[in-house]
């Protein structure tokens, strides 16, 4: 076996960043500081470089393991796209789906799980970038909507971990509408005063950012994640000049007031537990919130269900 194995090239972006998927070799070279790290050590460190804190991209299952206390239950694993547009470009979309299913073992780019986070029962939806760039199609829209509805029924906090290039082109306007669908579910959750934490990881762009990823009671990002609406290439074409270093990175968004905080992956769980308790989420159960009566404000009425 080779000591080093080259990372598969992800979809090319024009940013200076090197690909950061964890390769499958025994040793990994950190793209941040060129340190050579033993794979097992990296895993133990939640795929964060122990030397420079570079955050390697991680999969949905690894993400859920990092956030849940111990056992968790997966929901709606069998939902899959039936290629509603019969879409084909240089390759059949059905073939792309088949390949993504084979390589990830998932039916689409998201896993929904329920379990406990520091004792607090939560619903978490986490995206899988290895599945067609984490793109949002009808399956992701439906699974997140169900996750939010589940959280609403049980009055449990919901977390959505975004890692996505945006809406899935191969499902056309059907993908686009998932932005509205999930946002509508989040409106009900918001009015019911159930906490929603959005966690943005590298990358979160397009229709995912312009809908649920920006709608958290708190929007929390990992360090140096690419977060934006339009891709850097599209913006460069519009303004006809190179973008400054650090544009659309987490730190840039905090500076412009678009994120609540940037948190190292190793502190993520503890931070979330802390903020959830502020939001009245309790270990084992969520106490019903004290209702604040707002006079003559129909906008605050709870929608009938």
């Amino acid at each position: 076996m080779a000591w080093f194995k080259k990372a598969r090239k992800p979809i090319a972006t024009s940013t200076a960043e090197k690909p950061s998927r964890v390769p499958e070799g025994l040793w990994v070279k950190c793209p941040g500081c060129a340190q050579v790290i033993y794979n097992k050590d990296l895993e133990k460190n939640l795929s964060v470089c122990p030397k420079c804190a570079h955050h390697f991209r991680i999969g949905a299952a690894e993400r859920l393991r990092a956030l849940f206390d111990d056992e968790w239950t997966e929901h709606f694993p069998n939902l899959s796209s039936n290629n509603p547009l019969r879409f084909a470009d240089t390759k059949q979309y059905s073939a792309r789906l088949k390949q993504a299913i084979a390589t990830t073992g998932l039916k689409d780019a998201i896993i929904v799980g329920t379990g406990r986070l520091d004792g607090i029962p939560v619903v978490i939806a986490a995206m899988e970038y290895a599945f067609i760039g984490g793109s949002m199609g009808v399956v992701m829209g439906e699974k997140i909507t169900r996750a939010v509805e589940m959280a609403l029924d049980a009055r449990q906090p919901v977390l959505i971990v975004s890692c996505s290039g945006g809406a899935r082109m191969m499902e056309g306007a059907l993908s686009l509408m998932q932005m509205a669908k999930v946002s509508a579910a989040l409106a009900r959750l918001d009015r019911a005063r159930v906490p929603y934490i959005s966690i943005l990881t590298d990358p979160t762009t397009g229709g995912v950012t312009a809908s649920f990823a920006m709608l958290g009671d708190l929007n929390i990002a990992e360090p140096r994640a690419l977060i934006g609406f339009a891709g850097p290439r599209v913006i460069e074409q519009t303004i006809r000049q190179k973008l400054p270093e650090g544009f659309q990175r987490s730190e840039f968004l905090v500076e412009h007031g678009m994120l609540d905080l940037v948190v190292d992956r190793r502190d993520m769980k503890a931070t979330i537990a802390r903020v959830l308790r502020f939001m009245r989420a309790e270990t084992a159960h969520v106490a019903p919130p004290t209702r604040v009566e707002v006079a003559a404000a129909p906008a605050l009425q709870e929608p009938s269900r």
């Binding site: 509508a184 009015r191 312009a210 709608l215 934006g228 609406f229 519009t238």
Partner: peptide, 26 residues
């Protein structure tokens, strides 16, 4: 939506997202 630097700086994503959520219950 305008794909430019100022759009991103001023939070085009958040602006659209909030409209989606609020229009759903308007």
């Amino acid at each position: 939506a305008y794909p430019g630097v100022e759009s991103e700086e001023r939070g085009i994503s958040e602006a659209i997202a909030l409209n989606l959520r609020e229009m759903a219950v308007l």
